[in-house]
């Protein structure tokens, strides 16, 4: 169980980025965090990953207080952040340095095959397309078999087709070991496509404005009425969060977003 308790973060310049965020995420749940820019989504993820320390509260994973990057927490960034001097296979195996070479090669090959890039093992990162590079980044995070995988707007730099493709692919990969996923996104459709629960954040300082359960069977139909209903609910919450007052109509919100 991943527990965020009264999490707060004030940066050295005095900006209060996050305030009193509490969230319990049971193992295997997929949580999407949505919100406009400046509502602390990325800050939240950096605190959970251990890259930054909170000023208040704390993050606990199965009893371990997270104060630094943790072996059971993986992270995928908005950019692939592949190391340009390593081949694709070298990048995927980057976190497996402690393993014997044979075991490492075997796991890297299996994971590359799993993301559909077995033929790219010996290729340099600069030769990959944006979608392929992000797949490699996914493989690099998943090959260490994390219990929690954090994704910070992982597909936002990709075109719409590649994005939808990778969302499906992520769900497919999730089935392998069913890790807990925390996905930060500003794309409401992406949140509905992926999440069991959508956490809507509001800015200045970043707080949780609403939590919306997505009770849709997978694979989810983007054209269904239920999808639209969830979307309206999320948009209304976002709009309320943005305005800082109760929402007008859901339709108006949908039109705005």
């Amino acid at each position: 169980m991943l527990i965020l308790k009264d999490l707060g973060k004030t940066y050295v310049n005095g900006v209060r980025a996050l305030d009193a965020v509490s969230l319990d995420v049971p193992p295997g749940e997929i949580v999407a965090v949505v919100g406009g820019s400046g509502c602390g989504k990325s800050t939240l993820l950096r605190l959970v990953s251990g890259l930054d320390r909170p000023t208040d509260g704390g993050v606990v994973l199965d009893g371990d207080e997270i104060t630094a990057p943790h072996e059971r927490i993986g992270m995928v960034f908005q950019e692939p952040r592949l190391l340009p001097w390593l081949t694709v296979a070298g990048n995927v195996g980057f976190g497996l340095a402690a393993l014997a070479a044979g075991e490492r090669d075997r796991r890297v090959a299996a994971q590359l095959a799993r993301v559909g890039l077995a033929d790219k093992a010996a290729v340099w990162p600069r030769e990959l397309s944006g979608g392929q590079a992000q797949r490699v980044a996914l493989a690099r995070a998943l090959v260490t078999r994390p219990e929690v995988l954090l994704l910070d707007e992982p597909f936002s730099a990709l075109d719409a087709f590649t994005r939808a493709d990778l969302q499906d692919h992520l769900l497919d990969l999730w089935h392998d070991a069913e890790p807990t996923l925390v996905v930060v996104t500003h794309d409401v459709d992406e949140a509905i496509a992926l999440a069991d629960r959508i956490v809507v954040m509001r800015p200045r300082p970043g707080r949780i404005a609403a939590e919306i359960a997505v009770d849709l069977p997978r694979p989810r139909d983007r054209d269904s009425a239920v999808w639209d209903a969830v979307k309206r609910q999320v948009l209304a919450a976002l709009n309320g969060a943005r305005e800082g007052r109760p929402t007008a109509t859901a339709e108006a919100a949908a039109a705005w977003w």
């Binding site: 890259l51 990057p69 943790h70 072996e71 993986g74 960034f77 950019e79 190391l83 976190g95």
Partner: peptide, 11 residues
């Protein structure tokens, strides 16, 4: 710095 963070994530 972003590449260094990758190193930090892998401890």
């Amino acid at each position: 710095r972003k590449i260094v963070e990758v190193g930090r994530i892998f401890r």
